[in-house]
């Protein structure tokens, strides 16, 4: 299910003295099965762009095509588009409202008017996808969950709608390291085993470096970089100039390079770094 964004612009509070433009002529194509990371400083327009992808905003300038269906089309079935493009909000636990975990996750499928057995199956399946045991958690009180569990329940609530594309808006913020790791694992599994296309918005360069194969960088309402994650992170100066940091590994590699080590650019994982540094050290010893 391809997604196309064509010449999209957006202003907030149009027609008021507080009007300000947040998207300028954005163009974007996401193909099936991609894992795309989206980074950028705060207020760069990431969330606004993402909310266009599941028709929470309808374009006034430009076009958004979901599966070749124009969201601005009067005949477009927005509810169906929103089911196909799942959206997990920042702090998604704010959307939880039902007394128990199971009931809250069933909310999306109920809106689709599915038969009861199908709903049960989806609730169970999506709980397992996020690593919440069905028997333990299905009837548990929402407010008895920990922060990380609440967030996983909220993600399950979106997964139960059976999306083909998933937009994840900074879903690891405010979690402790273990919670982050759990969520990251869930996201990775979803992409690999369910073949869901993912747009992963994050403020953590490390997370993006680990997960995304393609990386978009936004600044001031424009996509200023779009390419393979390694190549984007190799453009150190440009990223720093808009106030973004590099993944921790890249920082280490960067300082080793300026200290005179001959290392290739674009190293993103710990394992790569270990073997490359070992090789460089070996080379050095050989010279001496």
């Amino acid at each position: 299910m391809p997604i196309d964004v064509i010449n999209l612009s957006h202003s907030y509070k149009t027609g008021t003295p507080f009007e300000h433009k947040v998207l300028f002529d954005v163009n974007l194509h996401i193909s099936d099965g991609e894992f795309v990371g989206l980074i950028g400083p705060t207020r760069s327009g990431k969330t606004t762009l993402a909310q266009y992808l599941n028709a929470l905003y309808i374009p006034r300038q430009g076009r958004v095509l979901i599966d070749n269906e124009n969201t601005a089309d009067k005949k477009a079935d927005l509810v169906s588009i929103r089911h196909r493009v799942g959206y997990v909000f920042q702090n998604p636990e704010y959307q939880l409202f039902a007394p128990t975990v199971g009931e809250d996750i069933a909310f999306g499928p109920i809106n689709q008017n599915l038969p009861q057995e199908e709903i049960d199956r989806l609730v169970k399946g999506s709980m397992e996808m996020v690593g919440l045991d069905f028997n333990t958690f299905c009837h548990r009180d929402i407010f008895a969950l920990s922060g990380g569990q609440k967030r996983r329940a909220a993600i399950a609530g979106v997964l139960a709608c059976r999306p083909k594309v998933l937009v994840l808006d900074d879903i690891t913020s405010g979690l402790d390291p273990r919670g982050r790791e759990e969520i990251m694992k869930v996201v990775k599994d979803l992409h690999l085993s369910q073949n869901i296309t993912i747009l992963f918005i994050s403020n953590s360069m490390d997370e993006v470096a680990l997960l995304a194969r393609r990386l978009l960088v936004m600044d001031n309402g424009k996509i200023i970089m779009d390419g393979p994650t390694r190549e984007v992170f190799a453009r150190t100066e440009k990223l720093r100039s808009i106030g973004l940091e590099l993944p921790e590994i890249s920082i280490i590699i960067d300082s080793l390079q300026s200290a005179g080590f001959n290392l290739p650019r674009g190293i993103l994982t710990v394992d790569e770094a270990i073997s490359e540094i070992a090789a460089a050290l070996h080379l050095r010893e050989g010279h001496q």
Binding site: H83, F89, Q95, F97, G108, N111
Partner: peptide
């Protein structure tokens, strides 16, 4: 928006159905 993303259409349905949609918000 979060509930719309899960398929609630706030402008659809009759009066009772619409009223029910108030709770998730």
């Amino acid at each position: 928006k979060a509930q719309m993303a899960r398929g609630v259409a706030f402008d659809r349905g009759n009066f009772i159905q619409k009223t029910k949609k108030v709770f998730p918000v």
